[in-house]
Design a protein around this nucleic acid. Structure first.
Lengths: 231, 231
DNA sequence: TCCATAATGTATCGGCTGATATATTTTGTG
DNA sequence: CACAAAATATATCAGCCGATACATTATGGA
């Protein structure tokens, strides 16, 4: 009982992190595993995904998974952090634009325009981006059934997003402080998108779309923009 | 191999169904198991829920589960059908009212009012009803990760709901035929609700609500009604 | 009351899963 | 080139899960 290996692996994944000049092959493997995990977790969720399937996709075996990430749960959390990272990078422009407008003295119409930009960017990212569908699967699932990554997404993605949009909506309506109503509108607006991702199959079937391409995205954005126009 | 028992159990759960005068105790057990399954599946989803936990909650053992429902999946599907049944019963009034308005020659304002009634009823059912939270958990999960019950919900719940609301929206706008836009608006409107259920924790945290009671529901309905006013 | 059948419990099987002890190979460095 | 450390593979374990063979009890009609 209480073997050295398990302690080392569980507490701080690989000791390698403390070392400055580690081998490059290790990093490549780590990334390959992470990528495979994103695919597998994204397709099947946490429970349904087996570490073996991840190892297979990463063209390796089981031990490296624990070697680099400590456990299945550690790997899952690493996926969540990776998703947040990529997400932030992509939305960086739209977000910093909005932040600037929120912090400065701006007209309702400026705020409205920023909100539209944010929403359009989110739609393209969440629903349109093929490379991001897997990440969105993980996000959507974590929303409807909080798992090991809930807190990561909540604190780094949802709460900031809700607050940002609520402030913009508030500005549009000329409120001095953000009202409960505005915050609720923000939640509903933001909720629509992962929902739409999750209900992709439902929506596609109901709309009789053969796929979700440019024209479909544009229609969706148009409808949302019109909704924003009427705030 | 190919034993009688398994064939009988898998194809048509119990032969009992063909019999007119079966024992009452069997029905009670069946219901108790179904109720327990609704709780367990609702709390944990299909994969995470074990047949043992269901049997425990139903204060019985494993064999009766297969005896009455053939398999874990059969039990899950039975839960979905039960949910659809209860759901339909509760929304029956609002739905038949809306149907009547759709089929007759009605003014935009009549349609708008019917849509508001439908949405308010849905909000109370999906978000407000404590007895229905478990069913909604199953529905929400099945939306974001299609499982054995997806088709049941799609055909009996979502598609009819989307079509109904789309027709009302279309009527409100005075369209002759239901436009793609109206249908999309309908999807977005309907999507908000299970989303809000799923994101209950997120919303509650973000709104700093201690719970979702009458006043919170009313605020939510108010925001949605205002949205409908601006269609 | 008796008995066929329905209902439930006990015990167990086979398969899968996460994890890891152990052995082997690969890598970077002096 | 040699060698310590890092990385990867093999083999295996222990636990859980769905399912069911088998045994037992309960039910209700004749």
């Amino acid at each position: 009982m209480m073997r050295m290996d398990s302690i080392r692996a569980a507490v701080a994944p690989p000791g390698r992190h403390a070392v400055t000049n580690a081998s490059r092959k290790g990093d490549e493997s780590r990334l390959r595993i992470l990528e495979a995990a994103l695919v597998e977790f994204g397709a099947g969720g946490y429970r349904s995904t087996t570490t073996r399937s991840i190892a297979d996709r990463a063209k390796t075996t089981l031990p490296p998974l624990n070697y680099y990430f400590g456990s299945k749960e550690g790997l899952y959390r690493a996926c969540a952090e990776e998703i947040v990272l990529r997400y932030s990078e992509i939305t960086n422009d739209a977000v910093s634009g909005a932040t600037q407008i929120i912090q400065s003295v701006s007209s309702p119409e400026t705020a409205r325009s920023a909100l539209k930009t944010l929403v359009a960017a989110s739609v393209r990212l969440i629903i349109g981006s093929p490379v991001f569908i897997l990440g969105n699967g993980i996000i959507a699932r974590e929303l409807s059934e909080p798992g090991p990554a809930f807190d990561i997404f909540y604190e780094q993605l949802w709460l900031p997003g809700i607050e940002r949009n609520a402030k913009l909506i508030s500005r549009i309506k000329g409120e001095v402080d953000v009202s409960a109503e505005s915050r609720l509108q923000s939640i509903l607006l933001i909720s629509s998108l992962p929902s739409f991702h999750a209900r992709r199959r439902v929506a596609q079937k109901a709309m009789q779309w053969s796929g979700i391409g440019e024209s479909e995205l544009n229609l969706l954005i148009e409808v949302l923009h019109r909704q924003i126009d009427q705030i």
